[in-house]
Design a protein around this nucleic acid. Structure first.
Length: 289
DNA sequence: ACCCAGGGTCGTC
DNA sequence: GACGACCCTGGG
């Protein structure tokens, strides 16, 4: 494996901090020099923004330029999206200014499913730890600059882990969910290839909901953050509930706000861009909390 | 030491 | 449709 380098010039809407710390991914770590290093498929990538250039280095199987283009959603015009959404109201405009460099990644569907099953009633540092331990135990090692990295386990590899072994990685009560979902995908009771061919978002959502550990919130995250890439979903977690209540609903007790009410407001205000609107709001609210 | 919350889901009523 | 239980861990 040979190191590759790729430079992206004059790119707008690309801020590593915003992209990697907006809660959509769990496998990127900040380096001392301000760059970020992460594992994407069978590659390790380092990303650094210097002035108007984004510099990528990688080691791994895939062509770096092609990988970057796909993974970072470079074919989409985020300036257009931001212009449209900024006109909705001052709240969204402010949150977009705050997270102006966000891009929604095209992450591997299988990895996204497992990662967000793990995310249930969990916090981001612990989610990252669990995924790292799963990768260490069931993924492949890549050595780069004298450091060890581990790829996310394949379906086949993870399917060999028992529930007890999964529990040891710190999954807690999610062990059985990860186990069952892995088996179901291995047997192709849920066929991920077929899922990509389906056009109707609601239909894909229904299929995802048959997986153990996948409820409405996790299904929406999978639809939004994976290669399925749907923006007509609105994942509602504690932070989104909080920000939507603070901005629009103003209920004394945010935990009592009806999800249906939030969904209605989101659809009315943000339309078919509600998914990405959610991400600007989430990042702003969580980062300034 | 203790308590709380965290990108929710599941089983039960 | 509402309600509590659920592993675990970092931070107050």
């Amino acid at each position: 494996m040979q190191e590759q380098k790729y430079i992206l010039k004059n790119i707008s809407s690309f801020e590593p901090k915003h992209i990697f710390e907006c809660g959509q991914c769990f496998r990127w770590e900040k380096e001392d020099d301000g760059s970020y290093t992460g594992i994407v498929k069978n590659n390790v990538i380092n990303v650094k923004k210097v002035n108007n250039e984004v510099i990528f280095y990688s080691i791994g199987a895939d062509n770096l330029e092609k990988l970057v283009k796909e993974y970072f959603d470079l074919d989409r015009n985020y300036e257009d999206i931001k212009n449209t959404l900024s006109k909705v109201d001052i709240y969204l405009e402010n949150s977009i200014n705050y997270g102006n460099g966000i891009r929604i990644l095209n992450q591997d569907l299988w990895e996204t499913i497992i990662s967000f099953i793990i995310s249930a009633n969990n916090n981001i540092p612990r989610i990252k730890g669990i995924i790292n331990r799963l990768s260490y135990k069931y993924g492949n090692k890549i050595i780069w600059n004298n450091k060890e990295y581990y790829t996310f386990p394949t379906v086949e590899s993870l399917s060999k882990a028992t529930v007890e072994e999964l529990r040891k990685t710190g999954l807690g009560f999610r062990d059985i969910r990860v186990y069952e979902t892995t088996q179901k995908i291995l047997n192709k009771q849920v066929d991920l290839e077929e899922l990509h061919k389906e056009k109707d978002t609601k239909k894909i959502r229904e299929i995802l909901l048959t997986l153990s550990g996948v409820g409405p919130k996790v299904a929406d995250c999978i639809l939004l953050f994976s290669t399925l890439k749907r923006f007509d979903v609105f994942p509602i977690d504690v932070w989104v509930r909080r920000v939507m209540n603070d901005l629009y609903i103003k209920n004394e007790d945010e935990t009592k706000v009806d999800k249906k009410e939030i969904e209605k407001i989101a659809k009315e205000k943000y339309g078919n861009l509600e998914g990405i609107a959610q991400q600007y709001l989430f990042y702003w609210k969580r980062d300034t909390a």
